[in-house]
Design a protein around this nucleic acid. Sequence first.
RNA 1: GGCUGUGUAGCUCAACUGGAUAGAGCACUUGACUACGAAUCAAGAGGUUUCAGGUUCGAAUCCUGACACGGUCACCA
Length: 620
Amino acid sequence: MKDSLPQTLEAGVQAAISELYAADGAAQTITLQATRKEFEGEFTVVTFPLTRVAKKKPDEIANDLGVYLKEHIAEVADYNVIKGFLNLVIKDEYWKQFLLDEAAVDGFGQAPKNGETVVVEFSSPNTNKPLHLGHVRNILLGWSASQLLEMAGYDVKKVQIINDRGIAICKSMLAWQLFGEGATPESSGAKPDHFVGGYYVQFEQKFQEEYKQWQQTDEGQAVFQKSAKEGLTPEVFFKGYSKKYFNDYSKLGEQAREMLLKWEANDTEVRALWGKMNGWVYSGFEETYAALGVNFDKLYYESNTYVLGKDMVDKGLEMNVFHTREDGSVFADLTNAKLSEKTLMRADGTSIYITQDLGTARLRYDDFGAKRMLYTVADEQNHHFATLFELLKRLEEPYAAGLYHLSYGMVDLPSGRMKSREGTVVDADDLMKEVIHEARLVSQERASTQGLSQEDQDAIVQQIGMAALKFHIIKVGPQKRMTFDPKESVDMQGQTGPYVQNAYVRTRAVWRKADEKGVDVDLSLAKDYTNLAPAERELINQLYGYPELVKTAAESYDPSLIAMFCYELAKNLHKFWHDHSILSAETPAAVAFRLQLCKAVGNTLQSGMGMLGIQVPERM
RNA sequence: GGCUGUGUAGCUCAACUGGAUAGAGCACUUGACUACGAAUCAAGAGGUUUCAGGUUCGAAUCCUGACACGGUCACCA
């Protein structure tokens, strides 16, 4: 494989240093960056760091290097120097060849398989309520990261762990038993996961009622007198006491816990109910996943994995990285890694959350042999994953070095944090419905897809709506806590998914038009085109950076980089479109060349957006 | 309180990891459809990058210290 342009240039600069300044050029790190838009050229060498070796002023160095590179490097057409920055202009011929031989060829940007497997976990919902906006960000991030890794050459396994057991689902089950009167999703017409979620909400309501009443009883008053600190009002005290009440006094709480115990004891009736209600939830989830356009290679269920990890604990004890306390509980001392002491096994021998994560990690390794594993989980669990990874490292697990927590900031609404208790949670299904509805309105207004079948129109409208939503979420860097304004998420102008889609549609429209026009377009003439216009150079230069960007984005697990790239590319395409005529260009060579350019840009947009889970329509 | 993240235009976000005059979009003002699609393009206005020091040719970025807002510190999941 031949050297990339930056590599060639860097080597050239190093050679120049050796030759011109009698210094060890190879030892110098060269600062090479993309030239800023307002200057001529594509690559820029920053000469300030070289003043020491060269013993000259930055401008002089830049000139020396410019002369040298123009003479010795075939690809360099010209250079200019501005304030110590050496801007290099690459020959048209090079860009032209790159476009025709690489960028316009199918599969551009796809790295060859590297033989490595990576497991990506995302979504991982609870089964007691439907998916919401927070899950949407998680899913889009995890999905995009997995697509990115595939593009970068990895074999990717997408997994989720479903939290299908525990007190939460028991609450839903109990509420259904007490108040459901045998209703089913079919009988009620509700989407099944929403149906189950409704009972969870109902449980909470009934629980609150029960709690309120109890506060007035003698028992409640006695607890307040005994436990409340000086000066606390009953309201404040009871607000913080809710959990304790649930565990120690609540009738509903007792029933729910009883159900959990029965579940753990494998009670046939409880298990049957559990299976039935979770089944409903899964069919609902499947619908949502399909609408989001995501799928998984393997599902793990907590009901199967929550007992895992005990052998890991044994291993840790054997290796002397875990220790036993007097009461029999097991812990690891991580204080020398700036983490705390972590318990891994209760005195009664039951395991806890992190223990099953240890076991699950091992299970996945056994399943896939992956030495890299990604966990897409919100940043509130940073501490948990730091602990988990440290433990696995100490256990000397073979995949420990490849563990990565794809941590992301939570999603806020303009009104503040989403709170299920206050009913401010934005439901995933509602959200999708809303953006598609909005896309339909806009589409009808434009009437640009008239003449297509209703089916096709529906498909397009859905693609547009989902593009708006997905792009809006994914363009924000993962680490950043983001504010989600529903009004902005349905925007279709400016820095949005539909804007990018529109650029793609244009690249396709011009080809359709060319076909209609007939056979008088000779594509082979493209190579005869000369004098690239600035807008053309800009586009090709940008395409040139795509494979490298994919690599960078994959290495940093950051799909927002791809989103921004797609936007910039679309923007330049729009500008090019506006400035230049394609089918009625000056010469047949120009027509052919620009068609190829459109094709390359279109393919790249499709590829980039595809990684974000966004489809690009032929018309819109 | 310890650890940790964030703080950039009215709002939502960028800034190639220390480089040039801090960039986009939305909103606001103005211009461009008889031209391959106006979900577009062009122009205007909008900034002491929270504050104060420091490091150097050069700081939104690194260091120190404040301030503000999150997260987290269970033998919960």
